[in-house]
């Protein structure tokens, strides 16, 4: 077990450029095993970029990212191994439309984790029960509501037994009445001790679930602390302004 001595995710001095535009500027933070970190910040502040760098959907230009002891920033490291251990949930769900809900959950189990079909389906059904849509197992994603799709996407990620899950604005594409059902699933995961890094604008969720809140602006971490501290007594002007606008 990684326990307390070694962080699950360690980001140090990360810089990232898109052309000449600097999207990330010297980002450092770490996430311990079982910790829930919420990243907030205005649009374009680099939240998605840092999240996507953790499983190398974006490559970084400077700095270092270590996930579960594996160096993501080293091009020689087999990134698939990292991605097996770190799930990702997207704003736009990204379910596979040509596969049923059940197949969405079993595909990577079979081709990546090398489980046999029966075992994969058993695990998939358990997870679908857990997120409350077992009855849709045979349906295609297009037949599901946004909230249901996102719950399937979370279950798909869980099916790999990840050590951590990254969430990039998982509720931003949802109709308001569906946000709750997805947040509930995420809260359950949090209670069960999943390591989570969540980019969100849901301040209620951040307050309730986060161990730590990171506030980003213009590619930098401007403020970092407990939700207590952040929501009641932020030190930086930018954070204050942001909170006053969003709350």
């Amino acid at each position: 077990m990684t326990a307390d001595n070694r962080p699950m995710i360690e980001v140090s001095g990360v810089c990232k450029y898109f052309g000449s535009f600097q999207a990330l500027d010297d980002i450092s933070f770490s996430v311990r095993d079982g910790e829930k970190v919420v990243i907030i910040g205005p649009s374009g502040s680099g939240k998605s970029t840092i999240l996507r760098s953790i499983n190398r959907l974006e490559t970084i230009d400077r700095g270092k990212i270590i996930v579960d002891g594996m160096d993501v920033s080293n091009p020689k490291v087999d990134i698939c191994k990292v991605r097996e251990e770190v799930g990702m949930v997207f704003q736009s769900f990204n379910l596979f439309p040509h596969k049923t809900v059940l197949e969405n959950l079993t595909l990577a189990q079979i081709v990546v984790r090398k489980r046999d079909r029966q075992e994969a389906e058993k695990i998939a059904m358990e997870l679908l029960h857990k997120v409350g849509i077992a009855e849709k197992a045979a349906a295609y994603p297009a037949k599901l509501s946004g909230g249901q799709q996102q719950r399937v996407a979370i279950a798909r990620s869980l099916a790999m037994n990840p050590k951590a899950i990254l969430f990039d604005e998982p509720t931003s594409a949802l109709d308001p009445e569906m946000i709750g059902e997805v947040l509930d699933v995420m809260k359950t995961l949090a209670r069960e001790g999943m390591t989570m890094v969540v980019v969100t604008h849901e301040m209620g969720f951040a307050r309730e679930v986060a161990d730590r809140v990171i506030f980003m602006d213009h590619g930098r971490i401007v403020e970092e602390g407990t939700p207590e501290h952040f929501f009641t007594n932020p030190t930086h002007e930018r954070a204050k302004l942001f909170l006053s606008q969003i709350l």
């Binding site: 499983n55 959907l57 698939c80 191994k81 991605r83 097996e84 770190v86 799930g87 990702m88 997207f90 736009s92 990204n94 379910l95 596979f96 439309p97 040509h98 595909l107 990577a108 081709v111 990546v112 984790r113 996407a153 798909r156 990620s157 790999m160």
Partner: peptide, 26 residues
Amino acid sequence: PKGQMEAALSLGMSRGQAMRQVILPQ
């Protein structure tokens, strides 16, 4: 959509697996 490849990759699939299982069938 690009998100399809990204979703497949972030499940640990290789580019080839993602291509065969996710992109090409669509």
